[in-house]
Amino acid sequence: MKKFIFSAVLALICVFILPLNALKADAAANYAKGYSGDKDLSGIYDQYGLFDSVEYEEINEMIDAYSELLEMNIVVFLPDSLYIDNSDYETEIFADDCYDEIFGEDTDGVFYYIDISGKSPAYDYLSTSGKAVLWYQDKIDDRTFEGFMIPHLPVSGEEIKAEQIHEAITAFCDFLMNQKNESKSFSRHYKDSSSGKVFYYKNGELYITRGNAPSTVIFITFVSFLIGIVISLITKACIKSHYKFKASTSPDVYVSKQKSQFSVQTDTFLRTHTTRTKIESSSSRGGGGGGHSHSGGHGGGGYHR
């Protein structure tokens, strides 16, 4: 029994050393590129031509300042009417790809698409990359949009005013500054199902890898271990049952059919009962959905105005 307990403890140790080793082994697979420090690429991309040069510079300076402060790329994109027919999905792909094109994949930054193309309903989308994924992913929801940017933006179909957009961009910068979650907890992670990339912190450093976050790997390993225990116990029970004594010979083999006979063997009909029950009917239905993929890992969320 002592040996068994020793073996079991040893197996447990080995099992849990595996994922711990995995934590050390994946440094080479880190795609995170961080922030280049080039704040000039950050700023407003005004395809719509909403702002004059003074306003444009003023907003750019504000965005650059936040970019420097937060150490991440920040882009605010104002589409013109060429984007009016874009679906929500196409808008998301455009935001992710456009960010990657400007700054490169897996760099730290955000791309805010303010839909002033004239599409109705307008679809604003905030794409995050690098550390911004973990900083803002928990905050990007309808409540955030409505709490910060939406109060300043026009309702779909209304006239677009530069002051409103300016205020919305300022609110967006406030959001970036005040709503960031810089926690580098080991258990925090985000998985981009489109690219298959996972974002997490390890030893205070951002990691973007393919596969699962170490905390997820440990959890899966632990669950596998529990499943392994159950399978082992079932296996053990099955094997033990094969080591039990098998049933003895039936005494039926000793019955002499020639010498056995029934003097009375009658079957007399007595009665018939018939009952009926109503058949209950039931039905069910179900459905499904789809997805898309791109190479750079992104987080993000959108809002219909």
Partner: peptide, 13 residues
């Protein structure tokens, strides 16, 4: 049984 458990855990890992 320990081997089976370890194999399942390893596969899961």
């Amino acid at each position: 049984c320990i081997g089976v458990c370890a194999a399942v855990t390893l596969i899961g890992f």
